[in-house]
């Protein structure tokens, strides 16, 4: 049994990470999950949060928003709309993201469409939780 799998993190603009890992913790839409080698093939969407990848050569953490993860037994790829290494995240990044979430929440409220309001409220809450979690 293999004890590592290939991990790829790509954003639309570039590929951010590609290395072997032993475990990856991802912020799934229905809750955090950790994928290890020989995981059942799964596709899940992501909510904004922190992704932790642990490998034989050390670990890495990324802030990801919007996207999905494709998990296979021997490989995992995460496609995130925005992904930033945690070390490079600044207060300004978070403020921008929260402001954006707040704006889309507001516009959804104005249009009075309930499902969109709920989605946007969740997005805003996720962003704010992320903010508290990172405590920059």
């Amino acid at each position: 049994m293999a004890n590592t799998m290939q991990f790829d993190l790509v954003s639309p603009e570039r590929s951010l990470a590609s290395f072997p890992v032993s475990a990856v913790q991802i912020p799934g839409a229905d809750g955090d999950m950790t994928a290890m080698p020989d995981h059942a093939p799964t596709i899940t969407t992501l909510r904004p949060g922190i992704l932790k990848a642990e490998g034989p050569d050390g670990s890495a953490e990324f802030l990801v928003t919007g996207g999905f993860a494709q998990i296979n037994a021997d490989a995992m790829s995460v496609l995130a709309e925005k992904a930033i290494p945690v070390g490079e995240v600044t207060r300004a990044h978070l403020d921008d993201m929260i402001a954006e979430a707040r704006a889309s929440h507001q516009s959804a409220v104005d249009q009075g469409q309930h499902t969109i309001v709920d989605d946007a409220a969740k997005l805003l809450a996720d962003m704010e939780a992320l903010d508290t979690h990172m405590s920059l």
Binding site: D30, T42, I43, Q70
Partner: peptide, 13 residues
Amino acid sequence: GTLYDYEPSEEAI
């Protein structure tokens, strides 16, 4: 050939 589990549902994704 691979059958994936979808989380949440396929439609939602």
